[in-house]
């Protein structure tokens, strides 16, 4: 590569960098800037004074925010673990050779390809207390026993979790499948020659070799689950009794419903920081694993 080429490469990168700065960098900076100010849209008379870390201090003392954080953690923990487990099973299944595998692989991706707003709306109908399919499947025509899933705090959050697992397990499956496919067939053949059963082959060959892929899937899913918003926004808007008021939805309500821009931004910035820290931890672990794998 000549120095002239390098200049050209850099020059060709400019548009992409500009787009990123404009549509990613600027909003993030704006959010961080707002989170250090008191900015209430409905009260322009108060101006927008700089308040330092006041918004974040308030956030730590806010019981609603603590509750939202707890709900979000429950949501993240349950959805990611189930999604990885189901994803792994799906990936193992569609990694086998059998007739119609291509079609099945495509089908598995359908839930993930549907926009979240649409699938959330679909699940809202499925969970409906009067004419929902789920009630019909469980109780048949005995409508007196129908359960109002989205109207009770405990089941409303579970409904959200189920909808998310349905939607994103296939994404986890796709990532894990990629990991499965790089495992050379010779390893399995050699193991078979040595008399290893299928369980042993899984634990001693498959499992260690797909761990990096699993970690990548875990990283993506945790980060994504932490930012959950659209599912809750469509299915329950936070209710009942704040049972599904996940952090991002709480931030949205503060900003766009109440017009409390500074405080709402502090919430999003906190979510951003949590996700950032998680990503760094994961990436370091994954990095180490990849090193080990290479060695």
């Amino acid at each position: 590569m000549t120095p002239g080429d390098k200049k050209l490469y850099l020059f060709l990168l400019v548009p992409a960098i500009l787009v990123l700065l404009l549509f990613v960098g600027a909003p993030i900076c704006q959010s961080i800037f707002l989170s250090f100010h008191r900015d209430i849209i409905a009260l322009p008379q108060l101006k927008t004074p700089f308040v330092g870390l006041d918004n974040f201090g308030e956030l730590l003392r806010d019981p609603v925010a603590r509750h939202s954080f707890l709900i979000t953690v429950i949501f993240v923990a349950t959805t990611t673990s189930f999604e990885l487990l189901i994803g792994l099973l799906i990936a193992l299944l569609i990694n086998h050779r059998f007739p119609g595998r291509g079609a099945l692989r495509a089908c598995v991706l359908i839930p993930w390809a549907i926009p979240t707003v649409v699938s959330a709306q679909m699940w809202r109908f499925l969970f409906n207390d009067a004419y929902g399919m789920i009630n019909y499947v469980i109780f048949g025509v005995e409508s007196a026993r129908y359960i109002p899933w989205l109207a009770m705090p405990g089941t409303a959050l579970s409904a959200l979790i189920i909808a998310d697992i349905w939607k994103t397990s296939s994404f986890a499956a796709l990532l894990i499948l990629a990991g499965l496919q790089v495992i050379p067939d010779e390893l399995y053949r050699a193991a078979r020659v040595d008399g290893a059963g299928s369980w042993r082959r899984f634990w001693h060959i498959t499992w260690p070799l797909i761990r990096p892929a699993l970690l990548v899937a875990l990283l993506f899913r945790t980060i994504d689950a932490f930012r959950v918003f659209d599912l809750a926004f469509v299915m329950t808007p936070g209710g009942p009794a704040d049972a599904t008021n996940v952090l991002q939805l709480y931030g949205y309500k503060k900003m766009f419903v109440e017009g409390w821009m500074g405080y709402g931004s502090a919430i999003s910035v906190s979510v951003f920081l949590i996700v950032l820290v998680l990503a760094i931890i994961y990436l370091r672990t994954i990095g180490r694993h990849l090193m080990e794998a290479r060695a």
Binding site: I40, A42, L43, V64, A151, M152, P153, G239, P240, A241, D242, A243, K253, V257, E258, G259, W260
Partner: peptide, 19 residues
């Protein structure tokens, strides 16, 4: 002018109270 904020608190209280 801050009705929306008052309303959010009321909604939270009422829903928690009756759910």
């Amino acid at each position: 002018p801050v009705y929306q904020m008052i309303s959010q608190e009321l909604q939270r209280f009422f829903s928690r109270a009756i759910a």
